Structures are given as C-alpha cells and as structure tokens.
Amino acid sequence: MRRAAREAVMRHYRTLSDAQIVEKAPDDLVTVADRKSEALLSEGLAAILPEATIVGEEAAHADPAILDRLGDSLCWIIDPIDGTHNFAHGRPPFGIIIALAEHGETVAGWIYDPLKDRLCHARRGGGAFVGEERITARTTGENPPVAAISVMFMDEAQRHAMKRHIAPHYTLTDIPRCAAEQYPRLALGTNDVSVFERTLAWDHAAGALWLNEAGGMAARLDGSAYRVDDRRTGMIGAASPAMFDALAERLNEA
C-alpha cells in the first residue's frame, strides 16, 4: 500500500492535469493515479495470495461482471484511491483500502491514509489496530450525538425523512466524502453515527470489519451483517452498539 501511495497516488497529488481526470458518471471521477494504484496493488496482492480473485473498483467499472466474483472462496477487494473527488481537487481526505473476503465475508482489512501515514487494520476475531496500537471504539461524549449522514445517493423521500425524523436528534456534521476517513472518525471519537446509502464493497468491506472489531457496530439497517456479495443499499456505522440501535430504531420509524 505504501508503494502504491508513493509511486502512484502522491506522485500525482495536486499535479493532475484536466486530461488526467475523467468523469465516469455524474460527480464520480477517476484519475490516472487511481488506475496506476490499482495496477500496482493488484500485482502485489496476486503475488501474496495468487489463488484469490481480485476485484478492483476500476476493473469493476470497466467490466461489471467482475462483481459476481465477490463471493468467491477468496477475494481481494481494492479501492485504489478512496475519496477520488477530494484527491482530484487537490484536497484531503483520501486513502487506499484493501479487504480480503472469504465466501463473501470480510476476514481482513486495511485502510491507509498516505498524508497521515496512518494504517488502520483488522483481522476477523483479532481486534482493530491503528499502526501497532490496538484500539477500542469511543464515542464523542457529545449530547446530542454527532452524526455524519450522506444523502448524496438518497432519493427525495429518503432525504425528507432524514431531515424530519433523524436530524433533530443529532448534531449534524459534514461528511468527508471518503470512507477511508469516515470509519476512523466513528471509532476515534470524532463522530458517533453515520448513515450510508451506497455500500459498495471497496468502500465498506475493510471499514465495517475494522469498526466492528474495535467494538463499534457497522451493519445493515436491519442489523444483519455486512457482506461484500450483498448488493443491497443502506447501512449504519456507529461508535457503539447502543448508538447503532438508537439510530436504526429511528430510521425504521421514519
């Protein structure tokens, strides 16, 4: 991950030309750095575990059929630059995310912030770490709790429900447009809860595992576990199971 950050990501940070940024879909960008990072990461991961399938964000965009491999016996999942919109505009946060899944269940995950040189990582049943330090999720201690809610991919009815039924119970804060930053915020005392509508595997597999291993809770709105081969939308991340339950109950009533 550090090699990809050094040779692909940071080499292009704040030096991208317009020709090196492409809009894949409205407000969804890809850069030459994303593609180079994914190539380097794919090469390295294939050498570590050659029997595993590799599903990268950019490869899946080029060939959506690759998504059918997420439930394979072993699968590497790559987000070569999470937070590309920020990166392309020359501002933080952004990061690199890798997860390893087994039959659709995440068993290990890594989230790397190249600007902070911060590596968040977790193994199923092995706890959550920032670098060498094992961490336990903590709340902000604020009342009302701090919520980062992404409404970018919600329809108008969902946005209205959030504004009317959810917002009054929380102190709302801006989202970072970067799962590689949002998950650490949920565990490290910056945010208490977050709602995600789009739940793509490369964005959430590593972070959900890491937050759960830290003692927080990341799951579907009905409390079921997040799986990389589940294409449903909607997910909650919370600094504690109690905060997850409170938000899930309000969402069910909205």
Rank of each mutant, 00 (worst) to 15 (best):
A239V: 08
Q158W: 14
D113R: 01
A246P: 01
P50C: 05
I97Q: 08
T139S: 15
I66Y: 06
H204C: 11
A238W: 05
D174W: 02
C75H: 07
A206Q: 02
M162A: 11
A246L: 14
A180K: 04
L119N: 09
P93A: 07
V193K: 03
A205W: 02
I78D: 07
A101Q: 11
D63K: 07
G141Y: 08
E7S: 12
E7R: 11
A167H: 14
A88D: 00
S150W: 06
E105W: 01
G234F: 06
E181S: 14
A179T: 15
W76R: 05
S73F: 09
L70P: 07
D79K: 02
A218L: 00
A225W: 03
V32D: 13
A60N: 00
L209H: 03
A65H: 02
D203P: 01
L49I: 12
E23D: 09
A225K: 06
V30R: 12
R35V: 14
I98M: 10
I97Y: 00
M243V: 02
W210S: 04
T139L: 10
T15D: 04
E38T: 10
E105S: 14
D245M: 09
V30C: 13
I81A: 06
D72N: 12
A8R: 00
R91F: 04
E142A: 15
E57L: 03
H12S: 15
M152P: 00
V9I: 13
L211D: 00
R250Q: 13
R227I: 10
G234R: 06
I54M: 02
P144A: 09
K116H: 12
V146G: 01
G126I: 00
F196S: 11
Q158G: 15
P64H: 04
A239L: 05
C120K: 01
V55P: 04
F87D: 04
G125S: 12
V130Q: 12
E23V: 09
L45S: 03
A88K: 01
D79S: 10
N86Q: 08
I77S: 08
A157N: 11
A206N: 03
A122S: 12
P64D: 10
G207L: 04
T140S: 08
D203S: 12
A47L: 13
P184H: 05
W202H: 09
T136C: 03
P168Q: 10
P93D: 11
W202T: 00
R138E: 07
